[in-house]
Amino acid sequence: MEIIQIVGLGLVAALLAIVLKEQKPVFAFLITVFAGVLIIFFLVGKIVDVIRVLERLAVEGGINLIYLKTILQIIGIAYIAEFAAQVTRDAGQGAIASKIELAGKVLIMAMAIPIITVIIETVIGIIPS
């Protein structure tokens, strides 16, 4: 029942942030950031298990590990960009949040280019000339 821990953490953090928002909005913002960090820390432990299983399956299936590594990095970029964008949007800077999301998309596209190239080359190789 770890979800109850997460929910409790979120509620406590929200209450503390409300209490502090009147006097010191900066501290309320930092509490929000810290609550986000804690929750993601909590989830990273679960993600590790999933990734280990994926790695094992990839090794057993004989898939080139460079593809798995690229996909995992893409997932990591997506999580980090989402976290930073939400924190920034919470601070009232929607424009910077949008830029962070844009940066995440562009970086993901740049990392996916080798895989796309392999797919296109494979398709071209299949087509009889």
Binding site: L16, V19, L20, F27, A28, I31, A35
Partner: peptide
């Protein structure tokens, strides 16, 4: 505990 520390510091500073 760190969360409560942050909140405590904030309240005391305020």
């Amino acid at each position: 505990n760190t969360l409560f520390q942050i909140a405590g510091i904030g309240i005391i500073v305020a």
